[in-house]
Nucleic acid binder design. Structure first.
Lengths: 123, 123
DNA sequence: ATAATACATGAACATATATTCATATGAGCA
DNA sequence: TGCTCATATGAATATATGTTCATGTATTAT
């Protein structure tokens, strides 16, 4: 068996730069990694969650603190914390009736700061 | 006029750590920055767009190349390229009937790689 | 045990968004 | 001009997602 580039499903057009497509295909990360990456950014792609994470950059906070800070309902915050929990971006500890949330990851702040840098350079 | 922390809208509960909320509020970036940041990540939060960007990391490509590479319709790719264009993440040049797209930003790869690092450390 | 509190969660609803389909635009060529 | 091709785009549809509302659960206090 020869190469693995026999299956170019063809666009309607014939302007396919085959060598480029084949080479890029080889250089691309695995499908699963790209999917996971998009899922991670999807979590970052909501204002409420971005705000929560920035808040937790500064301090550990309980659910009610965050709700007051962002002027949103406790339920809305709780739902979003759930998303952040599932993405393993935050951790929590229970102290009596109060649940305190904090960051679980070092990279997030770096990713965010680089995002802000990008935005600022667009001005 | 004194401080600007008179307006704590109060959660249903009374467990509000006022000093923390006030301090975090001061440390948070501007509302607009956080909104823009979420918008940027929203663009990254789609598998198709992530794939397109990774493809363009490797080479400049025309629309048809990308469609073949990702095994998707030309229209779908074109719509997503529009989103990436609006976010100023890609640029393009026209050569005859063919339009070639390439990256317009240095940060994106760094942000993506840090995202992948995060994902890999979760294993 | 009962009540109160801090948080979690399921269902419903409204909104956003990704793809498809049909068609428009714009460039090269006969 | 008329035709073909590469790409862009508007409308429609299906799906995903964020918030609210109502309620469940776990912990503390009486």
């Amino acid at each position: 068996m020869s190469s693995g580039n026999a299956e170019l499903p063809l666009c309607s057009s014939n302007v396919v730069h085959k060598e480029i497509v084949v080479r890029v295909r080889e250089e691309m990360p695995r499908e699963e990694s790209l999917y996971d990456l998009a899922e991670l950014f999807k979590v970052f792609g909501d204002t409420t969650r971005v705000k929560i994470l920035y808040a937790l950059f500064a301090a550990e906070m309980c659910v009610c603190d965050i709700a007051v800070l962002l002027n949103m309902s406790q339920s809305a915050i709780s739902h979003q914390l759930r998303v952040l929990k599932q993405a393993r971006l935050v951790k929590f500890r229970r102290q009596g009736k109060v649940v305190y949330y904090s960051l679980n990851d070092e990279h997030v702040k770096q990713i965010f700061d680089q995002g802000l840098t990008h935005i600022n350079e667009l001005i």
